[in-house]
Design a protein around this nucleic acid. Structure first.
Lengths: 301, 301
DNA sequence: TGCGTTTACGTACCCCGTAACGATT
DNA sequence: AATCGTTACGGGGTACGTAAACGCA
């Protein structure tokens, strides 16, 4: 059967009309070119060029084969350009995962910046809880994901590369009419007696509240179990109780709610970038990861 | 830069969705396939497929590259078919040379047979004198040629392959009113005293006449120098003299002319097939040569 | 004589196989 | 345990270079 590489070499010979010129162009010896052409003729079962003193000319079959070679070369150049497009982020798709809070705060600016820098990459974002994010990563439904952890539940998986992006300290939310309202900061001890708004369904933030209060020496009295941060803020504004929230979740703060940075010791949430380690990231994923790291470094939460 | 053969291998992997299946299909080991794909990824500068436990899936770049590979394979198959067409005489061109007499007698049936057998080969015939035929052969304006020689001027060239096709004995042409008219054969001695019609311009047939007569012990008396065989036949019919002509030149014999085979010793013209030895004949040329040899073998001149 | 092509021969690289390992179901 | 993919390592084939010959202007 015909060898592709020999066809490409032959196409070069056909273009230049000379074995020696081809050899010069490709940094070969005329001998090498001649041998390969001879082999190609053997594969083709018929002469492909006629040799005379001044270069060579093509037979009908040689002309046809050289034409095919040209087309193959065009395909190769096209392939090269396409790969460069993918590598240069002028093509391709990128699927990113996020948890809801980051999806509403940290991620949008990164998405906007990425879309501006690489308008030809199809970027999609999927939001889910941590477990869902892991399964999407494992199923290759997303190339990378934002995640978070606390120091008592550190993510430590062999099959994942985890990069901490920034620390997300908690804040205390109190009603504007609460005695602490307007203060520059607060400690947990100062609200030990207050009723608490927490998150329902074993939400990790509920665990963070629980652990923090115990560490501070009291058990929180739960007044309400909210299902998202907006609901929690509404309860706080209504004076039902006080609440703990990650700083990242306070993008749009509701009127009637006062935010107080919580002084240490406080359970600091880490915001993480996660990629699967068992396959190398695509150029788009690398670019997005770099962009996230930069944004996080600039950000002063 | 991207290696073509690796791209083809990768296209196969892409089609089958599995390294191992590809290896089985191509009689390779999975190891070999895996290594080549890895190299291709290195050349591409980006991952081309994602490995999981059950086979592999393609990245965007991998999909694009595999698609190019498919197109290259199509080109290869097309090239293969084209070459088969040329080899199988379903395409191509064949240029044949001939001298005028053969062009009017031996060649037409061969041309008709060839065209019928291989209607897709463009067959052209060029007619010229011996010297012109040689230069056309040397310049590759024709692939093969019919020629002739006599035993005193045998063609013997290192750069040509000469195949005798058939012997073309001479005949004596006399007027219907000539005493020999109607005889089954004749010898030169019987017309030693007749005036002769011969060919002008040092035509080799004139030399044949000259040599034959001298060998028979007399010098021919030239009555007329004709420029072709038709003219010569007209002169013979008019009773101007007798003439010598190769049998091959007697396709359409003119009324009023009687043809007598010449008994030996007579100068026998050989009809030859000539190819240049310094480059191998195309399939079409081989086929035409074979056809000529067959026709000549069948022919009973 | 110089240029272009080819052949003979030796060498170096590259591709593939063997073997062993890790991962997944 | 079976299947799939990968890595390390060694051998064999092949493609190339060197050298020399040939043919043609």
């Amino acid at each position: 059967m015909l060898d592709v590489r020999r066809i490409l070499l032959f196409a070069e010979v056909a273009r230049r009309g000379s074995v020696t010129a081809t050899a010069r162009a490709l940094n070969y010896t005329p001998s090498a070119v001649s041998q390969q052409v001879s082999r190609l003729e053997a594969e083709a079962g018929q002469p492909l060029l006629e040799r005379h003193a001044r270069g060579v000319t093509l037979t009908d079959a040689g002309r046809a084969l050289a034409e095919r070679g040209e087309r193959i070369e065009r395909e190769l150049r096209a392939a090269d350009n396409e790969l460069a497009d993918f590598a240069g982020l002028r093509a391709g798709t990128l699927r990113v995962g996020t948890f809801p809070t980051a999806g509403a705060s940290l991620l949008p600016s990164a998405v906007i910046a990425f879309r501006e820098a690489h308008p030809d990459v199809r970027l999609t974002v999927r939001s889910a809880r941590i477990a869902g994010l892991w399964s999407m990563l494992e199923n290759r439904e997303i190339e990378l994901s934002l995640m978070w952890d606390y120091d008592w539940c550190r993510i430590d998986r062999e099959d994942a590369v985890v990069t901490p992006l920034l620390d997300d300290p908690p804040a205390l939310l109190v009603s504007d009419r609460h005695p602490l309202a307007g203060r520059a900061s607060a400690t947990l001890a100062e609200v030990a007696g207050d009723p608490w708004i927490t998150r329902a369904e074993q939400h990790p933030v509920a665990e963070a509240l629980d652990r923090s209060c115990r560490a501070a020496g009291f058990e929180p009295q739960i007044a309400y179990e909210a299902h998202d941060y907006q609901e929690a803020q509404a309860m706080v504004a209504a004076g039902i109780g006080v609440a703990l929230a990650p700083t990242l979740a306070l993008e749009g703060i509701r009127p009637g709610v006062s935010v107080l940075p919580l002084q240490p010791p406080a359970p600091v949430r880490r915001i993480l970038l996660v990629l699967m380690s068992d396959h190398s990231p695509t150029p788009a994923a690398q670019a997005f990861a770099a962009l996230l790291r930069d944004h996080a470094a600039d950000s002063t939460l």
